[in-house]
Amino acid sequence: MRVLLATRNAGKVDELRQILAEAAPGVELVGLDAVEAYPETPETELTFAGNALLKARDGVAHTGLATIADDSGLAVDALNGMPGVLSARWAGARKDDEANNALLLDQLGDVPDDQRTAQFVCAAAIVWPDGRELVVHGEMPGRVIRGPRGANGFGYDPLFVPDGHDRTSAELSAAEKNAISHRGKAFRELAAKI
């Protein structure tokens, strides 16, 4: 069975390939770079699940392949769950990690350390060519620290310390992070249901 993961992020494709190799060894996973390019619908939904379904439905419609897509972000309790679905463009410019992190730190400047709780959230969806759809969720709870640490990862990883750890997500190895991450949890659940 050939399945599309609607992303150009090679790291994300590798992560899901590893998970599928254990849970669904008969599945061949390909990313967007392996299929003919198609116009991608903007992420306009108000939920992670809604955006994941948009991308997965697009993939099926344009390729005929069962398609997996995810949407994820950081939900900060002191900011009423924001940046949430706006995580990648929190500071206005798409995928400007440095600006997003600076804005988040500024917004949390007066928030005491014990109230800087947050969670990375992921919704992963699969849509099959016959119209069936499934969405699963994963979370990684933790807290936002006052300054970046670590060089691994991306996005808010240098500011986020997962519960039970004293290192940021950007200080963990890829294997350590994948074992506890929101995306890893969602992808493992999805793989078990494929």
Rank of each mutant, 00 (worst) to 15 (best):
M1E: 11
L4F: 04
R8W: 14
N9A: 15
K12M: 08
E15N: 07
L16K: 03
Q18H: 12
I19Q: 09
E22D: 13
A24R: 11
G26S: 15
G26H: 12
V27E: 10
L32H: 08
L32A: 09
L32R: 08
L32G: 00
L32C: 07
D33V: 08
D33E: 12
E36K: 10
E36F: 00
Y38G: 07
T41W: 05
P42I: 12
E43V: 03
T44N: 10
T47C: 06
A49P: 07
G50N: 06
N51L: 04
A52I: 06
K55M: 11
A56V: 09
A56H: 04
D58C: 11
G59N: 01
T63Y: 02
L65T: 10
A66N: 10
T67Q: 07
I68G: 00
I68L: 13
A69H: 06
L74P: 08
L74W: 04
A75R: 00
A78S: 04
A78R: 04
N80L: 05
N80K: 14
M82G: 15
P83E: 09
G84L: 08
V85Q: 03
S87I: 02
A88I: 01
A88V: 01
G92I: 09
K95G: 12
D97T: 02
E98V: 11
E98S: 09
N100Y: 02
L103Y: 00
L104Y: 06
Q107F: 03
L108F: 07
G109T: 14
P112M: 05
P112N: 11
T117A: 14
Q119F: 06
F120N: 09
F120L: 06
F120P: 01
C122A: 15
I126K: 01
R132H: 14
E133W: 14
L134F: 10
V136Q: 03
H137T: 12
G138M: 03
G142A: 01
I145T: 01
N152S: 10
N152Y: 15
F154C: 07
G155Y: 03
P158G: 02
L159E: 06
V161E: 08
V161N: 01
P162N: 02
D163P: 04
T168H: 03
T168C: 05
S169P: 00
A170P: 13
A175N: 11
E176N: 09
E176C: 12
K177I: 06
N178G: 04
A179K: 10
I180M: 11
R183V: 01
R183D: 12
G184T: 07
G184N: 10
K185W: 04
K185G: 05
A186P: 14
R188W: 06
E189K: 15
A191L: 05
A191C: 03
I194C: 09
